[in-house]
């Protein structure tokens, strides 16, 4: 099951999207997500779709792989659509027993479904094309101004990148401890909620102990390699903009213009029935 989760995974390929500066991708993704919540009409989503589809095309990540990311959040997805569909008040358009669907519900469910899938697919496209390290580097540099209001940007970025390195290790460890306790007759699968929660103790305690031990070891290893925070540190792979990054910024600006335009048209009531 864990293997199905493709969100946050990097897909190695050599595409223009992969080579873009992470800051460009961060800004692009950020604007893209905001644009998702702007529209009340379907026409707006056509613009969004065209932009997103061309990004996927450029990324060289197979569509199948991108769609698999949806699998992990399928429950959340169905849940949201389900609640919108059946529980919103409005004019009834369908009734079967206690199940009733309203026009408002159908409308909201459709919109939520579209928004949610674009949201998930859009942010996973960023992680598919950006290594975790580039991502944290990008965040660190993009958020650097926050340093002036005493936000420890470097430290946060470092923590993120360490977390990313240790997630697979801790997952493997979870699997191992689980099996070791099962070999001692532990049962993680049956029983009521309370019993199941209790049965997690033999798994969680060793996991925490191990995480702390690793953190301790790692801190020592980092200090031994002269780590002393962000000041005075240089970068092996410093970020600097290239021609393609400026081009990408231009495209993002055009996209921004387009959606603002669409929104204005929508406001004016010209697109409402589309």
């Amino acid at each position: 099951m864990i293997r199905d989760i493709t969100i946050g995974q990097y897909y190695p390929a050599d595409s223009i999207l992969h080579r873009l500066d992470p800051r460009v991708k961060l800004l692009g993704t950020f604007l893209f997500i905001i644009s998702l919540f702007l529209f009340k009409s379907f026409f707006g989503y056509i613009v969004v779709f065209i932009f997103f589809a061309s990004a996927i095309g450029l990324s060289k990540v197979p569509l199948r792989f991108i769609l698999r990311g949806m699998k992990a959040v399928l429950v959340l997805f169905i849940f949201t659509v389900f609640f919108n569909l059946f529980f919103l008040p409005g004019e009834e358009i369908f009734r079967w027993g206690i199940i009733r669907i309203t026009d408002n519900g159908l409308y909201k469910a459709l919109f939520m479904g579209i928004r949610l899938s674009f949201l998930i697919l859009g942010s996973s496209l960023m992680t598919f094309t950006t290594t975790p390290n580039q991502l944290t580097d990008g965040l660190e540099k993009a958020l650097k101004p926050l340093n002036y209001i005493k936000v420890p940007v470097h430290e946060i970025a470092m923590m993120m990148s360490i977390a990313l390195r240790f997630i697979p290790i801790l997952m493997e460890e979870t699997d191992k401890i689980m099996k070791a306790q099962m070999a001692r007759g532990a049962d993680f699968e049956t029983g009521g909620l309370l019993k199941r929660a209790k049965s997690l103790i033999p798994l969680l305690v060793p996991l925490f102990v191990s995480a702390f031990r690793r953190a301790n070891d790692l801190a020592m290893a980092m200090e031994a390699r002269c780590y002393r925070g962000g000041t005075g540190r240089t970068k092996m792979k410093p970020l600097c903009y290239k021609g393609r990054d400026y081009a990408a910024y231009t495209i993002i600006a055009i996209y921004l213009g387009l959606i603002i335009g669409t929104k204005l048209l929508e406001r004016a009531g010209l697109l409402f029935y589309l």
Partner: peptide
């Protein structure tokens, strides 16, 4: 411990 002293993902 080889795992606990490697910091980066590459």
């Amino acid at each position: 411990n080889p795992d606990n002293q490697i910091i980066a993902t590459v």
